[in-house]
């Protein structure tokens, strides 16, 4: 379970998160919607531990541990996975090498045996097939020369392999066509289990047609201003965020 309590964070002098409170129980998928500049991406980066964001107050407890004090790789080992809005390109780093290094680093931390190249490839190929990815995917450099859709698929492939307990999808749907959108949704839905939860950050409702959330929250002005069932997303789609920001 993820519990965010009174989370304040800033970039430089600018306070972006101004007291976020949020509980995501295991097994649930929560959507976070909100206007541009509401702090959606900041929330995802603060949870995954990117530099440049200063947490001034509050905590984020995941499975009993305050994740805000952990290094990014420790958070990953603890089961938190951030699907990037703009996946980073790593020239010279092969996708297979990258995935295996990551997977084995996490397995080590979890006290599990590392996978050898053969076992890894078997696993990776199977996952790639499920995501309808070509096999040369594994040979290419991480995200280099990938189309927008391919990058998002690669994020889903990583997620499928690393088997996180909590996935944070930071506007993963931006710039995706409907087919790619479905793949992202299938990637998340495939992981659904009583032990898996997800925070789906999105500006638009359309992704939520495919990843049906249990709860929808509205983030505006650095706070959660409204929470509700999935119908809230439809309401927002129809009426926009006007009126919510002032709240």
């Amino acid at each position: 379970m993820l519990e965010i309590k009174n989370l304040h964070a800033r970039i430089g002098e600018k306070e972006i998160l101004r007291g976020v409170n949020l509980v995501v129980p295991d097994g649930e998928i929560h959507a976070i919607m909100g206007p541009n500049g509401a702090g959606k991406s900041t929330l995802s980066y603060v949870l995954s531990g990117r530099d440049g964001y200063e947490v001034t107050e509050g905590e984020a407890i995941y499975n009993g541990q305050n994740v805000l004090e952990m290094e990014p790789e420790v958070r990953a080992a603890a089961g938190i996975f951030l699907a990037f809005q703009y996946p980073v390109e790593l020239t010279g780093v092969g996708n297979a090498n990258f995935l295996r290094t990551a997977l084995n680093a996490i397995r080590r931390k979890r006290g599990e045996a590392e996978l050898d190249a053969v076992a890894f490839l078997k696993l990776a190929r199977a996952a790639a097939k499920t995501l309808q990815m070509k096999e040369d995917f594994l040979k290419r450099n991480v995200n280099v020369g990938f189309s927008g859709g391919e990058k998002k698929r690669n994020e889903m492939l990583q997620m499928a392999l690393l088997q996180p307990g909590l996935a944070i999808l930071d506007e993963t749907d931006s710039g995706l066509d409907i087919d790619a959108l479905k793949i992202v949704a299938e990637g998340v839905n495939a992981l659904r289990s009583p032990k898996f939860s997800a925070l789906v950050i999105t500006h638009y409702q359309r992704l939520l047609d495919h990843i049906v959330p249990d709860v929808v929250h509205v983030l505006a002005g650095g706070r959660i201003v409204r929470s509700g069932s999935k119908e809230l997303a439809l309401e927002l789609e129809a009426h926009g965020y006007a009126g919510l920001e002032a709240a």
Binding site: S48, G49, R50, D51, E71, P72, E73, R75, A76, A77, F81, L82, F84, P87, V88, L90, V93, N97, F98, T101, A102, L103, A105, I106, K109, Q158, L162
Partner: peptide
């Protein structure tokens, strides 16, 4: 950060 967010320790990420 991308590498670390996938669980790879910092020293190893830099080395890669």
């Amino acid at each position: 950060f991308y590498l670390r967010s996938r669980g790879i320790p910092e020293a190893e990420a830099r080395s890669m």
